[in-house]
């Protein structure tokens, strides 16, 4: 076997996911939140590819490609929202969106 075990890739993917989650929860700018979401998605992709390699089934890679496509769509919509917010001269601050406040 060449290189580290699959375990290592999985741990790495876990770190990526946790980092992305931290970014989503801590940052206030919606742009950065979107970027952190991308990191989380990439972490998941890495795990999928790793498992696909582990079991020799290529379906994991198929899944990862689908995830990539969906991530792209999500980024389109998210950025569209952010641009719309900017056009209405709203602050780009996630904490200011409190109309859900009960």
């Amino acid at each position: 076997m060449m290189g580290p075990e699959i375990n290592a890739y999985l741990i790495l993917a876990a770190f990526l996911f946790a980092t992305g989650a931290l970014g989503v929860l801590i940052r206030r700018s919606p742009l950065i939140v979107l970027l952190s979401l991308e990191i989380m998605l990439n972490g998941a992709n890495l795990a999928l590819i790793a498992f696909s390699r582990r079991f020799g089934e290529i379906d994991g890679q198929i899944f990862a490609l689908a995830v990539m496509a969906v991530a792209a769509s999500e980024v389109v919509v998210g950025l569209g929202l952010i641009v719309a917010m900017a056009r209405r001269h709203l602050d780009l601050d996630v904490d200011k969106l409190t109309t859900l406040r009960g």
Binding site: Y9, I49, A64, L65, M68, A69, A71
Partner: peptide, 18 residues
């Protein structure tokens, strides 16, 4: 890393698309 995991196509797609 994808290349190391024998996922060549995905790696290429990642760079191109993502």
């Amino acid at each position: 890393l994808y290349l190391l995991l024998s996922a060549e196509f995905v790696a290429a797609a990642q760079m191109l698309v993502y």
